[in-house]
Nucleic acid binder design. Structure first.
Lengths: 213, 213
DNA sequence: TTTTATTACTGTACCGAATCCAATAATACG
DNA sequence: CGTATTATTGGATTCGGTACAGTAATAAAA
């Protein structure tokens, strides 16, 4: 329902799977190259994977989930990365470092579908919806983390604005990185360059945030 | 197609309108209060307004346009506000002032549907899609403006990251403002508090952006 | 006054995403 | 051999959005 995957780990009882998950992803990847994302229907994906249309929804909650298969895994690690970076100094630095860890998972190859298709077909409503859904999920994570790091009585607005701004900068970095073409290199430097000024600007503000209120 | 409205000003020839536009907005407002946004269909809105379902699409390109009727007008003025603030000093300051002008159009009453429904029903796919669509449109505006202000040879990433970050901070401000309840007051102070740190952090970076490259 | 261009409105049909539900198939376990 | 559990399937339905043809209502031209 949330845009994340429906089926992940296998239970021990019941009818075994026909390994449909990966087959669906591969079938979708082929079709996205032949036709675009918008040009392929779930029916076609399921048909090429050799399963029914309904089984597709057993593995993905929406067609747009296929755009994020490469990203969702990395995004799932943000919460853990935030906890790892919790102790070190400023809240802004912790968030920045956590984002760098996540960004380190993305190399020059394998640019996610969400970014390539964004360039290819502009931006469809489905892509936008799925993108903002993930953005807001991460934003809630960072907001909660920042509020805790700043301390009790932290003002809501600074924490929230910092979280959204720092994630937006990350998204901008990912967009520029994806558009950079073959010689893009690793994602992390892009993220660092985009995120650092935001953290710098919010450093003092967040330090005083618990006093103001 | 872009999320904006299809029909705006009246031509001089042809069959006159049945003043459907405002009637549709009012019918939608009633239904959104009775049921939620997600709970009302276009069919119901058109029926209460006394027009056909197809006529709805003569005035709005999508159901989600109704969530932004109050906002789109203000957003349309951002380009003009940016031009007004172009000359004054730093690019960051110009953007910040332009955003303040836009924010000044929103008072304590009349919180747009997009924000109230977001709180009410979490966030549906339609709302997210329409929201990001508008966000990206404004982001392109600010990015182009910032690039020009910084000067020729400006690096892409800083301008893009700044634009997205500053707009994300604005969105965060709007969200907190809407949630603040009856005593929220004007939107502008929220935006100023959220946006200023981002501009502060990017001030030096953007000043050096045309030298780095 | 009649014609014509222009615009508004309506009905019908269609497509695709997503949900719901009932039925069946394949496995593990008692 | 039942039984619980899970996977898969098919059918039906809902809803947003598009396409298209046809009709109605107005202003201006003939």
């Amino acid at each position: 329902m949330m845009g994340a995957t429906v089926v992940k780990e296998t239970p021990k009882a019941g009818r075994p799977r026909r390994s449909s998950r990966q087959m669906l992803e591969e079938a979708a990847a082929e079709l996205f190259l032949e036709q675009t994302y918008a040009g392929t229907t779930i029916e076609q994906i399921a048909q090429r994977a050799g399963v029914s249309r309904n089984t597709f929804f057993n593995y993905f909650s929406a067609k747009s989930d296929l755009l994020w298969v490469d990203i969702d895994d990395g995004l799932a690690g943000l919460a853990r990365s935030l906890d790892e970076c919790a102790g070190a100094g400023h809240a802004t630095d912790a968030v920045r470092r956590a984002l760098m860890i996540v960004a380190d998972g993305f190399g020059p190859a394998n640019v996610p579908w969400a970014l390539t298709q964004y360039e290819l077909m502009g931006t469809s409503a489905e892509l936008e919806a799925s993108a903002l859904s993930r953005f807001m999920a991460q934003a809630d994570l960072v907001t909660q983390f920042t509020s805790i790091q700043v301390g009790t009585g932290a003002a809501v607005l600074p924490c929230r604005a910092f979280s959204l701004a720092v994630l937006a900068a990350t998204a901008a970095a990912a967009g520029v990185w994806a558009k950079a073409g073959v010689a893009r290199g690793r994602l992390a430097p892009y993220v660092d360059e985009a995120v650092s000024p935001v953290c710098e600007g919010y450093r003092l503000v967040l330090a005083q945030a618990r006093i103001d209120e």
